[in-house]
Each structure stands twice: as structure tokens, then as C-alpha cells.
């Protein structure tokens, strides 16, 4: 237990992570901080996957490419942060982690989510900010994540959001900032608990009238919708304030305008965010 297994990985690199692990084992601290340790592989963290008692694992700002399926052995893990790594793929086993509540995969290189990803039993916060995901990336069962209360999809490549989004009944926060969204499905109106909606920096021209059912203008609510090519009436209201936009969307006038707009829809506005410099693309660009 105290003697690390012999490994071919250089000692200097090993020692940084190993030191943290040894300390954690000695103190019994269930929260493991391993950010910015230059880790590129789980092999540099010997015995980690046997530390089933840990509840938090933070591996931000490393160079991890592969997540071993054995990570799912950490059955007591509640918070897993893998922000700013080089992850391109996730193991299917991840979604079987029984206590995982907060999963942060922001700033990686994910192109898709593994099948069965919606199977997390208690996942509450999922951060997929700054990846290369689009509407094709969701596995079929993704929207059965009924426990989800916050979903961060900012800085991705979505043009559409599947209408099944309406099944996420407990969703309170939805971030779609800086994607390529052309439209928002009307099922967003089913997200009755939604209090925070970020849709700024997209290609949206109209909003579904159903969005008027949501409480997005209370003092505990946030709606961010700047930087979209809105139709003139919405753009005008937005100049005055968010509450005016919502009031307008709830009006009969807008309902009429929206139905007309949908029936004679022209080509979508061009993409106007240049993503070629995104960190998540760098590997591809090299």
C-alpha cells in the first residue's frame, strides 16, 4: 500500500501526483486535488482507482487524453472535475457512477458523448462548456437525466437543441452561450423550473412563444440573449430591457409574427463566431 508499484514513468513526473495521493491516503481526506500537475495519463496516479472512499476528484489543467473505465470504481465520488484537459472520449462506464452529482468536463476536446450517458442516477450539474459538441453528439438516452438541475453547453457547435430537452423537468440552469443555434425548440417552455437561460452569441432570430411560460424575469431569474441577429421587434425590445422582450413574446402580436416567421423562414444567418482558434480545436488544427 505504501510502496508504489514499479513503473516506467519518469520519477520526477510521478512524484508530484504520487505525493498528493500518499498524503491523501495518510490523512484519509476524501477530497483529492490534483490540478495543474502535468498529468497526461491515469498511470501517473498509481492506486488512485482503488481509493474508493474519495468523494471529490479534481484534475483540472492537466493533459489527460484518456479516461480509464476503471474510474467508475470510485463509487463514492460525488464531484469529478476534469476541466481543461485533452479528453476526446469518455468511457461508457462513467454513467454508472452511483453518487456522481457534479461532473465538469469543460474545456476538453469532446466530439461526442458515449452511449448510455444519460444513465447517471443522481447527476445534478453537468458542465460541457468549451468542447466540440453538437446536436449529433447526444446519445439517445441523454434527456432521461431527470435529476439534472444545471446543464452547461456554452462554447460548443450546436445548431439545434433536441426537443427532448423538455424532459429535463428539474433543469434550473441552461447555458447555450456562443453556439451556432438557429432556433430554440418550443419544448423549452416545459422547463418550468428554469431560472437561468444563457443564449447569447448564437444565430437566433426568434424565440418560441412558449418561452413566455417561464419565469425568466423575476429577481431570481436570468435571461442572457445578446449577440443574436434578432428580428427587429425583439431587438427593439431588447434595447429597453429583458422584461420588455418577455412581455412582447407573451403578446398575441408576437404569436402572429412568430407563426408567420416560421412559415416563410429564410436561410439561417451566417455563423459569425470564428472558432478556428478555439483551444478545443487545436489538435485538429495542428
Amino acid at each position: 500500500m505504501n510502496q508504489a508499484p514499479v513503473s516506467c514513468i519518469p520519477n520526477a513526473k510521478m512524484s508530484k501526483a504520487k505525493k498528493v495521493l500518499d498524503e491523501a491516503r495518510a490523512s484519509g481526506n476524501p477530497e483529492l486535488d490534483l490540478m495543474e500537475k502535468g498529468i497526461s495519463s491515469f498511470e501517473e496516479m498509481p492506486g488512485l482507482l482503488n481509493m474508493a472512499h474519495i468523494t471529490r476528484l479534481t484534475l483540472s489543467h492537466n493533459k489527460i487524453v484518456d479516461i480509464p473505465p476503471g474510474l467508475a470504481n470510485l463509487v463514492n465520488l460525488e464531484i469529478l472535475t476534469l476541466f481543461n484537459n485533452y479528453i476526446e472520449e469518455l468511457p461508457v462506464s462513467l454513467s454508472s457512477m452511483p453518487k456522481l452529482r457534479i461532473l465538469n468536463l469543460g474545456m476538453n476536446r469532446l466530439n461526442a458523448l458515449p452511449r448510455g450517458f444519460g444513465a447517471f442516477p443522481v447527476l445534478e450539474v453537468l458542465d460541457l462548456t468549451y468542447n466540440n459538441l453538437n446536436e449529433e453528439s447526444f446519445p439517445a438516452n441523454f434527456f432521461i437525466l431527470e435529476t439534472l438541475r444545471a446543464l452547461y453547453l456554452g462554447d460548443n457547435d450546436f445548431e439545434f437543441i433536441p426537443s427532448e430537452i423538455g424532459q429535463l423537468k428539474n433543469l434550473q440552469i441552461l447555458v447555450l452561450r456562443d453556439n451556432d443555434l438557429i432556433e430554440i425548440p418550443k419544448e423549452i417552455g416545459d422547463l418550468t423550473r428554469l431560472r437561468e437561460l444563457h443564449i447569447q452569441g448564437n444565430r437566433l432570430t426568434v424565440l418560441p412563444p412558449e418561452i413566455g411560460q417561464l419565469d425568466l424575469i423575476g429577481n431570481k431569474s436570468v435571461l442572457k440573449m445578446d449577440y443574436n441577429p434578432w428580428v427587429a421587434p425583439i431587438a427593439d425590445q431588447l434595447q429597453v430591457g429583458i422584461s420588455h422582450v418577455i412581455d412582447y413574446i407573451r403578446s398575441e402580436t408576437y404569436r402572429y409574427l412568430f407563426s408567420r416567421h416560421v412559415s416563410v423562414r429564410g436561410p439561417p444567418p451566417p455563423k459569425y463566431i470564428d472558432k478556428t482558434n478555439k483551444l478545443s480545436r487545436i489538435r485538429r488544427n495542428i
Partner: peptide, 19 residues
């Protein structure tokens, strides 16, 4: 929200997506 390091009232922090 990125590195899970505790912050207190005095810690200076930035906001991204209200995190």
C-alpha cells in the same frame, strides 16, 4: 468552479456563465 479550490469573501473571482 474550475479547480474546486475554496474561496472566501475576500477572494477575487471572475464570472463565467454565472459560475
Amino acid at each position: 468552479s474550475v479547480c474546486d479550490q475554496k474561496m472566501n469573501q475576500k477572494t477575487k473571482f471572475y464570472e463565467c456563465d454565472l459560475k
